[in-house]
Design a protein around this nucleic acid. Sequence first.
DNA 1: TATTATAGTTACTTTTAGTAACTCAAAAGT
DNA 2: ACTTTTGAGTTACTAAAAGTAACTATAATA
Lengths: 140, 140
Amino acid sequence: MEVTNSVKAPKGSREEIKNYFSDNVKTKHCPITDILSRLSDKWTIHTIIILGKSENLRFTEIKKLIPGISQRMLTVTLRTLEEDGLVTRTIYPQIPPRVEYELTPLGRSLVGQLIELSDWANENMVHILRSREEYILKKN
Amino acid sequence: MEVTNSVKAPKGSREEIKNYFSDNVKTKHCPITDILSRLSDKWTIHTIIILGKSENLRFTEIKKLIPGISQRMLTVTLRTLEEDGLVTRTIYPQIPPRVEYELTPLGRSLVGQLIELSDWANENMVHILRSREEYILKKN
DNA sequence: TATTATAGTTACTTTTAGTAACTCAAAAGT
DNA sequence: ACTTTTGAGTTACTAAAAGTAACTATAATA
C-alpha cells in the first residue's frame, strides 16, 4: 500500500498543493465543503445564531424571530442541524405540541466561528459590493 | 426618523435577538449569508485555497490542480471570485490565450478565515458523520 | 359547532448547479 | 494544404436543490 498523501512537501510547492487535493477533493470527503454547504442556505446561519443567543426556543418562537421563513423551511433547517448534531430537538407530548430546540456543545463551538466569519463579512461587505458594481460597469 | 436597531439591549434578551434580525435579515443584506452562499458551492473554497498557496496561476494550471472540475465550472467560479474582488484576472493577449489569476489582498485576508473554519470542520467532521448515521438509525 | 394553537406534511414551482459538446485563432506537424 | 493542438472559454441542455402555498392532526376554548 503506497502512501502518497500528507507527506511534508516544501511550502508553496506544486507538490504541496497536490497533496491538499489528494487529501480533500479526491478522497471525496472534504469536511469544509461539506460543512459550508450545510451552512450556506438562506436560513441555517440565522437559526444557529439565534439559538446561540438563547438557551432553548420553541418552533414558533424561532419562526417569529426569523422574518420571512416558512414552516417548511424552518423544519428542514432544524432537522438538518439536528441530523448533524448541532441542535437537539425535545418533544413534549402535549396537544398542541411543544417542541424545544437547543444548540449542542458542538453547535455552540461553531457559533464562535460563525461570528468571526460574520465579522469578516461585515467588515468587507462594502468592498465586495463596490467590486460587484464595478464589475457590472466593466462588462458594459 | 426613528432608530430602533443596533441599540444596546440586555445580553440574551429577546430584544437583542430581534435587533440582530432587524440589522441582518430584514434589511435584506446579511453579509454573512451573502458571502457564505458564494463560498459554499463545490469548487470555490478549493479554488481560493490553491490560489492562496501560489502567487498566481493560469486557468489550465488551476484546472489540473482541481480534479474533476469542468471548464465551465472553473470559469464560473473564477468569475464570481473576480466579481467579488477576491481574485484578479489578467489577460495576456496572445494566441493561444494566456490568463493569470491571483488573489487580491481581500482574497488573501479571507484565506485565513477559511483555514480556521477548515480546522474546525476537520476536527469535528467525525462527530458530525456519526451524528448523521445515528439520525438515520433513529428514523428506522 | 366553529375557531385557535402548535408543529408539522405534501405537492408543486422556481432557481441554481453541473455536464457534455462546441468555438476561436494561430502555430506546428505531416 | 490540411489536420491537429493549445488555452480559455461558450452554449445548450439536464439534474438537483431551494422555496412556496395549501393542507393536516389533535385537543381546548368560545
